[in-house]
Design a protein around this nucleic acid. Sequence first.
DNA 1: TACAACAGCTTTTTT
DNA 2: AGCTGTTGTA
Length: 713
Amino acid sequence: MSIDFAHELNEAQLEAVTATEGPVLVIAGAGSGKTRTIVYRLAHLVQQGVDPAQILLLTFTRKAAQEMLARAEAILGRSLHGTSGGTFHSFAYATLRANAMDIGFEGGFTLMDRADSENICKSVKDDLKLGKGDRSYPKKATLMDVITKSRNKELTIDAVLEREAYHLNPYLDDFTEISDGYAKFKRQHALMDYDDLLFLLDELLEKNEPLRNQLQTRYKYIMVDEYQDTNLVQARIVRHLAGTKGNVMAVGDDAQSIYAFRGANVANILEFPKIFEGTKIVRLEKNYRSVQPILDLTNEILQGATARFDKNLYSDLKSDKLPQVIHPLSDQTQARLVVDQILKFQKKYLLHDIAVLFRAGYQSFSLEVALTRIGIDYQKFGGIRFHEAAHIKDVLSMIRLVLNPHDLLAWQRAMDHIKGVGPKTVAKIYAAMHTKDGKSEKYLTKMVGKHEALRELLVELDKLRSQPPKPGAVLESLLVYYQPILMEKYPDDYPKRQAGLEQLSQIAAGYSDMETFIGDLSLDGDPDDEKRKENAVVLSTVHSAKGLEWSAVIIIDLVEDRFPSRRAMQRAEDLEEERRLMYVACTRAKEHLTLLVPSSVFNRASGMSEPTLPSPFVTELPETVYDRLNESYGGGLEQRRKQVVSLPEPSTDTLMEEAAPSGPKVDPRKLGFCKHKIFGKGKIVAFIEPNKYRVNFPGFGLKVIIGDYLELL
DNA sequence: TACAACAGCTTTTTT
DNA sequence: AGCTGTTGTA
């Protein structure tokens, strides 16, 4: 089967796809078919006779790599088995594991997640007796922030504090001490954090020439996606892998650089042609995603940037509708208006083709409540990660104890549910368990006799230790043990958490050994990412929305201190990144873009609603690129007339259409039992005009639900 | 008196 | 969800 590349791609894309020999830098504007280009290039290489095993595809998330490989397989009609694809971190993890003895980890190593790193930081701090009783002492998260930033930007701690956290300067010596102690602790316990993966790989490739040559020979063709978000060490890794004359393609967009906070260096893109001699530069500027009015708005956002981007995206896709800027009275009514808008869009698009984006994870809370109440399913990306959720950590702590009985933090987690046992008692029990004398044994016997839950925990651990360490079986056993604890610990929402655990069990079943399972989970193990739910609205942080697109995009909380973030208002550099973030957010939209600017938001500190200032990214926009709607005190929306308008009068396409999604109506006269997608079976208690029901759901209590979301039984 | 339980407060972004 | 300060209990 032959693919008609010239027909499927535009000129620039074709050039990037067929330039397989030598270094290539592709500057790809938002929505310019970047993914398509990579996919077709994969296919082209294989069709030219390249062995798939000679290709390495480095992307920002593992999901992105898998998706691209799958799409290439689809158009090729053959498997790309053997192609290496994944994130820098996962590639590093695999390579380091295979060469552990070469980097001084003869007995292998354990990968830590962020929480582990922070906890070690804290215990190092405590051991050094630093910051005792000082309430304004930097928190463990701050300590870790500074340490990891210093590594990722390859600056001294001194320089990091100077540039980004001037107020922490008095703690400079402490930071240095803690950072050293942290590094030492990791070495002693054969632990690695995310940063170590990259730096140790760089070091390994630097000094081990045979390995470097071996990898260079193996990976004849290398592609790196999202190059604007790579940091210095990642750039060095690419150089090691490709050699200076390798066949390497980097794809990126300087206007979409949004990871400077973690050391990403846009200069990598500019340096690329200098490092790789004879680099061919290809620019993709035609946009295939968004209608022109949306691009008019996003181009305006870039106009305000201090760093000039000589980029002006254009599209053939027309629309007579401008993006909307809506000013709700408060963040509460904002949630309601967003729900209205989703209901409206739902008539035209599938739910998973609609997204609500925000700056930070917590900003969607009230919307999540509103969506649950009305019965719209949603899927959230960003914010608290799957493996960071408390119930997942509870279960994982048990696995950690099977792997390593000296893991004190895991013991604390595993005993957290035992009434009358706190951190001190756990430490005592821990000490007694690892001492072999009569006193300790007596103490243990006493405690086990006193706390039935402790006995059960130890029995379960013994059971797990005695059975073969197969992730699937272990998880199954654990879930049975953990079920009653889950229900007691999280009475409000345990069904949801249980679903998460079952998901974890499913994932575990796909692994044959424990270490790989745990490693993958810390690296990219968000199973929610894996399958995009069919019938659920997408809620996402802007960062997690990178590279994705939806027909309708709604961005909330566009006010000062939220978007841009309060933390970014100090330094011009940070504010510029917020602007690019805003650019990324708006360019996700294909047909509809709605920006919400609440006039007041709830402030937890003062406990009341406070007036806001609109985000500069909105106020800067010329009025010609959007339609403005204000929420009136009556709750409706009014279109504000523009100063200079000769446009057709306001379309009636506002939000005030009756929120009545199509679907089977429930017969009001028939009270009885019904079924709801989220709450399950319930008893209808009352009918509320015109189309709502009060239903009693076992485990959830009374809820008022719109008839369309109920199925009569 | 030591420790556990509870309530209240704050929350950027992520491999 | 974690940290801190406060209250409650053996």
